[in-house]
Nucleic acid binder design. Sequence first.
DNA 1: CGTCGTGATTGAAAGGATTCAATCAGCCGA
DNA 2: TCGGCTGATTGAATCCTTTCAATCACGACG
Lengths: 338, 338
Amino acid sequence: MSESHRTTVSVKDVAAAAGVSVGTVSNVLNRPEKVSPATLDHVQATIARLGFVRNDAARQLRAGSNRSIGMIVLDIRNPFFTDVARGVEDRLTAHRRPLILGSSGQDASRESTYLDLFEQQRVSGLLITPVGKVLPRLRRLRERGTAVVVVDRRTGSREFSSVSVDDVRGGRLAGQHLAAVGRRRIAFVGGPADLTQVRHRLRGLQESVPADGSPVRHVETAAMDADAGRRAAESLLTLPAPERPDAIFGANDLVALGVLQALTLAGVRVPDDVAIVGYDDIDFAASAAIPLTSVRQPRDEMGAVATDLLLAAIDDPAARVRDIVLEPELVVRRSTGG
Amino acid sequence: MSESHRTTVSVKDVAAAAGVSVGTVSNVLNRPEKVSPATLDHVQATIARLGFVRNDAARQLRAGSNRSIGMIVLDIRNPFFTDVARGVEDRLTAHRRPLILGSSGQDASRESTYLDLFEQQRVSGLLITPVGKVLPRLRRLRERGTAVVVVDRRTGSREFSSVSVDDVRGGRLAGQHLAAVGRRRIAFVGGPADLTQVRHRLRGLQESVPADGSPVRHVETAAMDADAGRRAAESLLTLPAPERPDAIFGANDLVALGVLQALTLAGVRVPDDVAIVGYDDIDFAASAAIPLTSVRQPRDEMGAVATDLLLAAIDDPAARVRDIVLEPELVVRRSTGG
DNA sequence: CGTCGTGATTGAAAGGATTCAATCAGCCGA
DNA sequence: TCGGCTGATTGAATCCTTTCAATCACGACG
């Protein structure tokens, strides 16, 4: 059947074995319709027999660019980002383009390493949720012909297309809902405060707090994971009873789930004593033993829309820069009495 | 400062601008100690000024192989796999090797597409949790000089190194614990049954079931996500009371969390009426409102060990094939009365 | 029977970084 | 002052695929 190769097989070897020229082999690979049926068969058989596999490096070198798309997310352990990535991957698969996924873990130097890699690889497009000050690098990439789309952020400058969700609106949805179910002492858990997302969600919440309620209490956290939520909830539990919140809005679902756990452990009834709202609506929000009310971000859609923008920019580098802002949606579940 | 480039800058351009030969530029890039300090400075300055970035395709073409490592996981949405991937990535970062991560989603054709990609890219190593019948392809990859390590599986044939966890033992740990807390009617939820993991965990459970208990009831599922767990739990709730299990062992944490949710919604008390044990010990297991007892797999360690094996095989292709089997560990929490 | 046209095939050139044998410059010691 | 040595630098060859102008073969048509 197949033979054993110490050395790798090239088009030249295939050509020699099949008794045709390298040009013909290349045509078989890339423009089979230009090749006579007999030759096509014969060459394809030879390729299979020798186990020839295209060398992508050489192909790219000639082509000048790579078909792959690079993506840098904040945290691959947050299901929110893996869901977005899934949306991207699904869309790319349809276009036969591979996705190279990197996670910066909120670390600017790691982000920079991935940018180096993608730049050297000459990826044809980049999807990024930026951490550090990367604007100059993004500009350079674009000058080189790499399309760039910012995900889950807006750049401010109108230089790069972006896809994001209206976080102020999301905060408002949460606040209005909590007000509607009669909550008057609302706390917000999340941080660090210099994250745009955190600020916007908080602002939306504040705007919609009932007139007869206390002002929003912000418990700032260093990270956005369950552990941070747990600790924040414990600190809230030490407050004298009249000051204790009757509702907590977590800046994302991981935080909210941590809050939920700490409260349940402490014997606080959810939602009777304290209502909880999360953000993102990851699958685990619905799977929690007390299903979590959450502000849903259209994760798949974000991935899909970002991919479409990117592919459009690759096809036509002069395509208009667009900031697409998607709408969040409130999903009511048991944690607020749904 | 920086100039604007329509066309890309090559070593030749740098050489011309710096007034040296391409060989010297290459030396500056790869063997700076061979270059005189003055030249080094000058060339580096020129590189910065022109914004030169190495073309990786050309570099690889010459070098014959790529520094990157490919990884194919079963499901990027399962935190278990992203945790393993993190372990891999951390280790690789230390060796300045990029990781290209793909998710097969349990789909053999998607797995095959990633294998094609990695083969064409000439990655220097591959980490894979196989789905389809890929042994012949893995052999071919190795013949071509790509190191291969199987993750979270054993190959059976002693051809490729692997890192896995003793699943029979894990099942036994769960069974012994449930027996110790007095459970006698145990159900196992997971599937499909042709997954080795599922079979092994079930077997371990059966081996340790108390002599005076009923035989294990296996509710087979089509997938291993929360939704499957939810549906399985609902079907168990339709059983007549005396047949209802007093303990449920989920084949992974996603399934167990789904079970937990369905039971809680139905008013079944956990752990009083039914105890629940999961598998993997993902972070969400501890974060669940009723924290989940789970059989812990050392996820970071699996990633790290697999990476070490892979790097060793890359350095020395004749390195001995090793099957490393790690030990699982029971983490007791509230869902079994901990 | 010669010419033209069509479709198939050819083969050399290009793409950019790396390598290494060859060359060069400069200095020391004789 | 010159041969010899060392360290620095050079530049042509190489890696493999793709492209495209040129060539070829063959049948149809005038």
